[in-house]
Structure formats: C-alpha cells, structure tokens
Design a protein around this nucleic acid. Structure first.
Length: 766
DNA sequence: ATAACCGCTCTTTTT
DNA sequence: GAGCGGTTAT
C-alpha cells in the first residue's frame, strides 16, 4: 500500500473509494490529476482489469502523461490497455469501428472548423441567401450548439423557441441550412467535431447491442474536467455508466470556462439527480501557489454568485504580491514583460520553461513574440495557427483524406486544381451544379461521366479523368501500404513536392521544409504503429491529425521555452512565474461578454484560472492604447484588477488613469521616478496618445531601462537603489554595451550581479 | 485559365 | 493587419 503514502486525507478517501458513483470537487492546484492517476492505479491494484477502464481527459497529452504516471506507480505497461483520451478521440475510434451501422464509410473524414465553415458558405450561396446575413461563423455556431444539445435538424425546425430566436435575429433560414449541412456532410462521408459526440449518441441509442457491449467493457468510468462537458457528452457517459454505475467525475465549477462550446454546469446538478446516493469528495488544500496568490484568487472568485461552496486554502508561504504593470502600448507591453522575464531568469537562474505569458485572445501574442525574438529568448506559442493548419500541410493532408475517402468534398475542392492542372472555376461550377441536380457527391460525377453526364469540354474532361485515376491509385494502397510509404508517394506523384521545391522564395523554402517535417512525423507514426504490431495506415494517421492539438505534439526542443498561450489553453497547467497580459476592459473581460451576468462570470472564472496557474509569482499588465483591427484604440484597465483584494496587490506604476472608479492614485511606485524606463515613458507621453503609433513601437529598447545617464555613467563605489533590492553599493563593473553588468552589494539581500540593460537601478547622490 | 490587385470584414475562447 | 472573395488585366 506504500504507493498511497503522500496523499492527504481527502485525496486518499477519493482514491480508495472504488465502487459506485462519486464526484470530486477539486479546487485549483489541489492535486486533482494526482487523485485521478492514483485512483486508476489503485483500481488496477485491486484487481480491476485495465481493459475495463475508460478515462476521459481534456487533452490527449494529459492522457499520455497519466498513463506514464500510472506505469511508474504500479510498474509494467499495463496502462496501455486503458481506454484513455479526449471524448472526441475516444469516440472517433469507436465510431470508426461501428461506422457501417450508421451508414458512414469506415474511413469517414473528420471535418475541422474550416471545412464546416466552407461547406456552410457554399450552402448559403447555393440557397441564394445573403452571406452578410448568414455569416458562416454564426450559422456554424448555431448548428454546433444544436448538435451539442442533441437537437436534430427535424427537431430544430419543429422547435418553436429556437426557430423563433432565428426569426428574431432575422435569420429564419438557418434550419434549412442545418438540414442541408447535415445531408452534405453525410453525403461526403464526413463527421464534424460535434458529430463525433452526436453520432456516438445515435449509435448508443439505436443499437442496444452496441450499447450493451460498451457498458460491459467500460465497467469503471472516470471523467476529468467534468464542469466542461456538454449535454451530448453528459448523455454518453450516463448511458455507458447505466449498468454498473461505477462512475467518478472530477471537476471544479470555479474553473468552468467552456460554455461557448456548450459546456453546462448543470451537468453537475444532473449528476446529483441521476445518482442520488453518490459520494462527494472535496479537495481544498492548494499545493501549487503562494498564499498571496491563493488568497487573491479566492477574493476574485467569491464575486461570482453561482458556485459550489468550498474553501481553498494553502500551507505555502506568503510569497510576493501580485504585481500590476501599466504600459503605454501593446508593443511596450511586449518589451516590458519580456525584459522582466529576462531579469528574473538572470537573477534567480531558473529555466525558461518556468515562465508563461497568458492572454485572452490569440492575436495578442504578436508583440510578445517580437520582443522575445529581439532578445533571442526561446519561446513557444501554443494555439493560434498550428502546424496542421498551414496551407501546404492542409493541401497534402487533403490528398490523404481524399485517398481515404473519395467523397470528402472539402478535400476534393482543395486539391482538384492544386498543383495547377487546368481544371478551372467554370468547369468545377458546372460539375458541382450537376452533382446537386443528380443529388450525389461530386466524386460520383467526376468518376463516372457516363452515368452522370455533364456539359464540359473534352479537354477538361480528360484532365479530370487523369486526376481521378491518380486518386484511385492512391486509394487502392490505403489499407495495406504503411503510412509513410504512401504519404511519400503521394507527396511526390501529386506534384506538391516539386511545386514547392521550385519556389525559391524564403516562404517557399519554409513550406517545403514543413512538408518534409510532416512526412517525418508520419514516418515516426509508422514506426510507433509497427512496434504495436499494427500496419499503421495513412487513414489511421488521419484520425490522429484531425484531433491533435498543439499541446499534444510537443517536441523535444520545445521543452525548455517560455510558454505563450491563451488562458483557455493553460487550463490544467502550472508555471512558477505567470504573466497575465492585456487586462483591459473589452478585451478581458471580452466585449462580447459584457451583456449578461453569466457571461461576465465566466470571464471572471477565466481570470481565476489564469491566476491559479501561478506557483511563485503572478504579474498582471494592461495597456493604455492597443492596436486592434489595425488601429490604435485607447483602453481602460480591466475591472478584474480592481476586483482583486488590494492587500494582495502591488501596483508598480504611479497613477491609474481610470475614470470614475475608485482611483488607485494613492499608490506610489516602490522607488523614485527614474528607476524604470517604461514608467518614465508613461509619465511623459501620456497626454498625446494619438501620434504615438509607430514611433513608440520602433525603438527597440537598446538602452532598456537604464535610461539617460543614470546607469551608463555608473562607477565602482556609487550608491544605487534597486526597485526590489533597495539601496546598495556598486562593487564592480563588467561587460560592455548592452552586456554591461554591475556587481552591487545590497545590505538587505546580499551581493547581486545585474545586467544594466534590464536592472532598474537609480544612482543616488554619492 | 490564371495571376495580380483591391476592398471588405473581422476578434473571443477549442475539440 | 491578415485573409478571403471578387474584380480586372494578361
């Protein structure tokens, strides 16, 4: 039993509770993953067959890590038989296995968001609707939430309330688009993300034998991040658990941040209703953060009305206060935060991976990226444009998709004329029109012109036939050729590789390299599969690709880098030093959330999540004016800054220019005015914001914070003052230019060597 | 049929 | 500032 040592009492109780329904409410940093891992290990130790365990995690990476940890607890590699992964990837595989029952090909395509939007655009156009009214994004959102609530097109149309909402929004035709969208996905042998859950529900509803099979298989079910499951997911779990009711859900209502994706806190209430005799466990001791951070986070979250009562506390030391930094522009914010990171890293000689910059929207990454580049600091941006979303990668993958599933229309549209083979828009328009009239997939038409005649000229017809033959020759190899071999073959014979190779522009070279990287990745996949004694076909690879996120495919060289990501993406992670940036009204909280209390509360939970990522220090920053939509717009500090209990906060800059609200102008910077470059800039240029634009963004802080003559004229023996270390005496000077360093003895903290470029030193009268 | 150019919209957040 | 769709010039 020694593996259970080191768990606290409540953790241990949760781990040792084996049978029956249970819920673990786990405060931030309270060892939730630990409990999940140990609980699974404990189940196996108690004789539960690993084949009978289903564990649903939030990312595939989390699943992978958990398996490794389980192995290290109980030894061997028994964890490999556990069904573990995200809802989407677990059920995609189950659907693939049962696809014939639902009338889908076993190699069905998984449409990503782009595919869905593109299809919706096409439908809107074909219906002759105004695409300014029926914006693909909005329509897709509508369809998506219908699916996540298991509302079929028919039910949608019949639902007075929903159709009424659409009519109010002047979009009464959405139900028609929904209907056509579903039909066309099916015709293309494709499921979108929401279908992976929706169709799983259909499968379990309409095929009792299938349901029975998986109920028997998954005798023990665990769901992580339960607060972020939607109705569709809730129902899958409920059905699977219906026989044995060995279900353990873990979550934290205070960290529910995915309601836009249909996540529903009511699932927690439903759980109590479905399993009245469930056991509840609360993990309330935070092991992650300093008490200042825990208390600050608590002071934020208590402003929300809806929440389960709990008391998160910690034994950890007090730590520093939450810093608040004010910058003039987003570019300056980038520089200041980056410099700060460099400074802390030098001072404490810690790793780059100990730092994270978290923001509300992906677009904010730019200014930080630029500054980090300039300072040559290693960083990795998660999310945003991921590797698999680059054009050249999508192009090649579209060939793979089409070879696996010829009816995949989005893939077909992408590659039928790429590389250029003279099949133009007019030809395609004709063919698509014909396909609609015959009511078949586009592929059906182009692969059999005898059966589906189209009026196009002989030249075009010939070119299309060549293309069809090519794809068919790939398709034959799909099931038996190893992924790597076929992928290479396709990359070459499709002409993509040559096309990119001929492009000698820097972008072209980069694209060529990306393709090589993809092929190398597929090679790796093939090898892995062979180790498992499986062939590892390209269509197997495609499932992985569709559901992989940035976090899932971390590379070795990314291991020790500064992390940049959205707060959403940071969920479940932790970092010693966290910077939460862009704390401005209309950005965080987002403008779109300001209309309702529930949405504002979700933003607040998001802020709570961000704060609780931090272990040792947490810094907030905001900006006076920021580029948005290519224009400089003025911003106000976020209400969230004021909402943190001010006894845990250290405001670094002088005046908070917040109109109306309780001003914090009483706060002084810790030291005299000249210490920090950005503070000075703030003071000086505050009054003329408009002409700022480029001029402020251009000068990279060559001089950094050592502005003017202060530190450049520094000599041994001078008395100086540092913002954090207090007063001290210079004992030595070394290095030159931007590398110039000063060794200073501070009576309060001892001897330090500071890089003048970053250190905030003020020369005192000597 | 294609490449080059212009103007419009867009911003949450993700599987 | 980017990406997409539509228009125009070759």
């Amino acid at each position: 039993m020694n593996y259970l040592e080191g768990l606290n009492e409540s953790q241990l109780n949760a781990v040792k509770n084996i049978d029956g329904p249970m819920m673990v409410i786990a405060g931030a940093g309270s060892g939730k993953t630990r409990v999940l891992t140990y609980r699974i290990a404990h189940l196996m130790r108690q004789g539960v067959d690993s084949f009978n365990i289903l564990a649903l995690t939030f990312t595939n990476k989390a699943a992978k890590e958990m398996k490794e940890r389980i192995n290290s607890i109980i030894g061997g590699n028994e964890s490999m038989n556990i069904t573990m992964g995200t809802f989407h990837s677990v059920f995609a595989r189950i659907l693939r296995y049962n696809s014939d029952k639902l009338g889908y090909p076993s190699n069905f395509t998984i449409y990503d968001t782009q595919d869905s939007r593109s299809l919706i655009k096409m439908i809107v156009k074909e219906f002759g609707l105004d695409d300014k009214v029926y914006k693909a994004n909005a329509v897709h959102g509508r369809i998506s939430s219908a699916k996540n609530n298991l509302i079929s097109p028919q039910a949608y149309e019949a639902n007075v309330e929903i159709v009424g909402e659409d009519r109010m929004a002047k979009k009464p035709e959405i139900f028609r688009i929904y209907k056509e969208y579903v039909k066309r996905c099916f015709q293309s042998g494709a499921m979108d993300f929401d279908d992976l859950l929706y169709q799983t529900n259909v499968l379990l509803r309409d095929f009792p034998d299938v349901l029975h099979h998986y109920q028997q298989k998954f005798k023990y079910i665990l769901v992580d991040e339960y607060q972020d499951t939607n109705y569709s997911q809730y129902l899958i779990v409920k059905k699977l658990a219906a026989v044995y009711e060995n279900i353990c859900v873990v979550g934290d209502d205070a960290q529910s941040i995915y309601s836009f994706r249909g996540a529903n806190i009511e699932n927690i209430l439903n759980f109590k209703k479905d399993y009245p005799d469930f056991k509840m466990f609360k993990l309330e001791q935070n092991y992650r953060s300093t008490s200042n951070i825990v208390n600050a986070a608590n002071s934020i979250i208590k402003r929300n009305k809806d929440q389960i009562e709990k008391d998160v506390w910690t034994d950890n030391s007090e730590g520093g206060k939450i810093n608040v930094i004010r910058c003039l522009t987003d570019n300056e914010e980038g520089r200041v935060i980056t410099n700060r990171i460099y400074e802390i890293k030098q001072r404490e000689s810690i790793d780059y991976k100990d730092f994270a910059i978290l923001y509300r929207t992906n677009a904010q990454s730019r200014s930080f990226e630029e500054s980090l580049r300039k300072l040559n600091l290693p960083y990795k941006i998660y999310g945003g444009l991921s590797f698999y979303q680059r054009k050249e990668i999508k192009d090649l993958i579209a060939y793979f998709r089409l070879s696996a599933n010829e009816k995949d229309e989005e893939a077909l549209k992408r590659v039928i004329n790429y590389p250029k083979r003279g099949i133009g828009k007019t030809t395609m328009d004709n063919i698509i029109l014909a396909a609609r009239q015959y009511d078949v997939a586009v592929w059906d038409v182009i692969s059999d012109f005898n059966r589906y005649p189209v009026s196009i000229n002989a030249g075009a017809r010939n070119k299309i036939s060549q293309f069809v033959t090519k794809i068919q020759s790939y398709a034959i190899q799909m099931e038996k050729t190893p992924a790597y071999e076929l992928a290479n073959n396709i990359a070459q014979s499709s002409g993509i590789l040559k096309n990119l190779y001929d492009d000698k522009t820097p972008e072209g070279v980069a694209r060529y390299e990306n393709i090589q990287e993809l092929l190398a990745g597929i090679k790796e996949f093939s090898v892995q599969q062979e180790e498992k004694d499986e062939v590892g076909t390209l269509s197997d690879f495609l499932i992985d690709v569709a559901l992989l996120t940035d976090a899932d495919q971390e590379k070795e060289e990314d291991k020790n880098t500064i992390t940049l990501m959205t707060i959403h993406a940071s969920k479940g992670l932790e970092f010693p030093h966290v910077f939460i940036v862009g704390l401005e009204e209309n950005l965080f909280p987002s403008q779109l959330s300001l209309t309702s209390r529930t949405e504002l509360e979700e933003e607040r939970r998001l802020f709570y999540v961000a704060l609780t990522r931090a272990e040792k220090s947490c810094t907030l920053s905001y900006v006076v004016s920021r580029y948005r939509w290519g224009q400089l717009v003025t911003a106000e500090p976020s209400r969230f800054i004021d909402e943190v209990d001010q006894s845990f906060v250290n405001v670094e800059n002088e005046v908070r220019g917040r109109s109306g609200g309780k001003s914090l102008s009483g706060y002084k910077r810790p030291s005299d005015n000249r210490t920090s470059g950005f503070g000075m800039m703030g003071g000086k240029k505050k009054r003329n914001l408009t002409p700022l634009g480029k001029s402020s963004s251009t000068p990279p802080s060559k001089k950094g914070n050592a502005s003017g003559g202060t530190t450049e004229e520094l000599k041994v023996g001078y008395n100086v003052e540092h913002a954090r270390f207090g007063k001290g005496k210079v004992t030595a000077i070394s290095g030159t230019g931007s590398d110039k360093k000063a060794s200073v003895f501070f009576p309060r903290v001892g001897a330090k060597t500071l890089i003048l470029k970053f250190a905030k030193l003020t020369v005192l009268e000597s």
